[in-house]
């Protein structure tokens, strides 16, 4: 009986797996897509697999996304694999075009794509952005990017824009992507967010501070330091509750903070003003980043009725009530 179990486990573990070893694949750490005047360009950052280490950028062009990706596969030294993808970067032009959603779906539909890859938007030349992707910490670019993204997400200055999370939003929420820019030839800056409004694509950007406030409202960040117009506030704990009643949305933000220059009332006023500003920006862009669509859909019996509502038109017209409760460290 024991022999049967052991044989069974050996067969299951040893049989049916792909035989292609890792050193015979080009694992793309970052993939960049852009389109200009109908010409698609795909760029990938892969390890050079040389003894000296280092990374190289592959580029390919085509009349369609599939052609460009095929060109990338053809120009790679080994079979391309996207199972280690960390960044999926779109050019600003592509992000604002009608092809953005189909491009995201096309990449996601590839069976080996790592769905935890983060989506970014850049206005800088894709080649320059790719070439600037070098490991800052440790020996591997993938690890370096993981650490950098995690640190910035904890601060709240960039959103959690994983491909998996964005796909699972469906039609109930809109994503905010990471803004990536070149500071100089060798330094990249990941800060702020790019608001996406469904099929319309990118509709504007959020600064790092606005992104922090959005992260607080989404519940992604509970501790951070925010620079407001009136002063700096160090938040030790935060919680946010959203609700939707007909055409009236309510944001209840509860914050425990310490600020050298602001009283509790001052901090609450400043936060309320800034939060209202962020919500106004989101409404103007038609970007339901807070996911109020998830509350609205509960009132509909079937998908056809939900589509009839046309949430894209209802969302920007919502009335907002923002309640901020600030407790300073002294009061606590």
């Amino acid at each position: 009986m024991r022999r049967v179990i052991i044989i069974l486990l050996c067969c299951l573990l040893a049989g049916g797996c792909s035989a292609l070893p890792a050193e015979e694949r080009s694992f793309a750490v970052a993939l960049g897509l852009s389109v200009r005047e109908g010409v698609w360009e795909a760029a990938a950052r892969i390890p050079s697999y040389q003894q000296s280490g280092g990374y190289l950028t592959l580029q390919a062009r085509g009349g369609s996304l599939e052609e460009a990706m095929a060109g990338l596969d053809a120009s790679a030294p080994m079979r391309m694999h996207y199972g280690q993808l960390r960044l999926l970067i779109f050019s600003g032009e592509l992000a604002r075009s009608g092809s953005f959603v189909s491009a995201v779906e096309a990449v996601a539909d590839r069976a080996e794509t790592r769905l935890q890859a983060q989506l970014c938007v850049t206005e800088d030349p894709m080649k320059g952005v790719m070439d600037a992707l070098e490991p800052q910490t440790g020996a591997r670019l993938s690890k370096s990017l993981d650490v950098m993204l995690e640190t910035r997400r904890e601060m709240g200055v960039i959103p959690d824009a994983s491909l998996s999370g964005i796909l699972r939003m469906g039609q109930r929420q809109d994503p905010v992507l990471i803004r990536i820019s070149l500071e100089d030839e060798k330094t990249l800056r990941l800060t702020g967010g790019e608001m996406i409004s469904g099929a319309a694509g990118a509709q504007g950007s959020l600064s790092a501070e606005e992104m922090q406030l959005l992260s607080l409202m989404q519940g992604k960040v509970r501790r951070t330091m925010i620079t407001l117009e009136d002063g700096t506030v160090t938040i030790h704990d935060a919680g946010c509750r959203l609700s939707l009643d007909g055409n009236r949305a309510c944001v209840r933000l509860k914050v425990r903070c310490s600020g050298s220059s602001l009283t509790a009332e001052g901090a609450a006023d400043a936060l309320q003003r800034e939060v209202r500003g962020v919500i106004g920006r989101l409404a103007e862009a038609g970007c339901d980043a807070l996911g109020l669509g998830r509350f609205a859909i509960r009132h509909f019996r079937d998908a056809a009725a939900w589509r009839e509502l046309d949430w894209r038109h209802v969302y920007p017209a919502l009335e907002w009530e923002i309640l901020v409760d600030v407790q300073t460290a002294a009061q606590a």
């Binding site: 699972r168 998830r294 859909i297 509909f300 056809a304």
Partner: peptide, 16 residues
């Protein structure tokens, strides 16, 4: 961590 209560809606799914 991936569970969302609105996933149960719309209750009738695509419809009849």
């Amino acid at each position: 961590g991936m569970l969302r209560p609105d996933g149960l809606h719309p209750v009738l799914g695509p419809g009849g």
